[in-house]
Amino acid sequence: MQPFEVIEHTADIGIKAYGGTLAEAFANIGMGLFSIMTEPETVDQTEKHVADIEAPDVEALLFAWVNHLLFVFDVEHLLFSRFDILQFSDEKLVAECWGEVYDPGRHEIELGVKSATYHMLEVDREHNTVQIIFDV
C-alpha cells in the first residue's frame, strides 16, 4: 500500500495518508507534508528532533502535529524524511523526526506550506486513514 497520496483543492493542497495503524498514518502525513515541500530523497537523516504533542482529541492532535512540524521548519529550518512514532494515543503523540537543516544548494523548495487547516480534516480509525488540507 502506498503511504500517502496528494489531494488537490482549488486554492490548496493536502495529503491523505494510510498506515497499518493510526500512528503509522500520522507518520505518513509527515512524509507527505515534506514531499510537497521538497524532494524527501534529498533530505539526509542526520538531525533528530523529538516532537511531544498533546491535544484534546485526535483531530486536534493531527492539526497540532502538522503545525508543529511547520513551526520547527520555520524556526530551526529542519526538513524531515523519517518519522518514528514512539508514543501514540488520541491525545498525545511523541515522535522522533529525522532530517537535516535546509540547504538551498541541495534542497529545492517546491511549495511553501503556511499551516494545517481543519477543512476536510478526517481521521478514519477503521481504515487507519487520515486526511488534512494545508494552507499554502
Binding site: 486536534a60 497540532a64 503545525n67 513551526f71 520555520d74 524556526v75 503556511k114 499551516s115 481543519y118 494552507d135
Partner: peptide
C-alpha cells in the same frame, strides 16, 4: 510565520 502561528494557536 507570526500570523500563521497566531491563527493556529487561536483556532485550537
Amino acid at each position: 510565520g507570526l500570523g500563521h502561528q497566531v491563527a493556529d494557536d487561536y483556532i485550537a
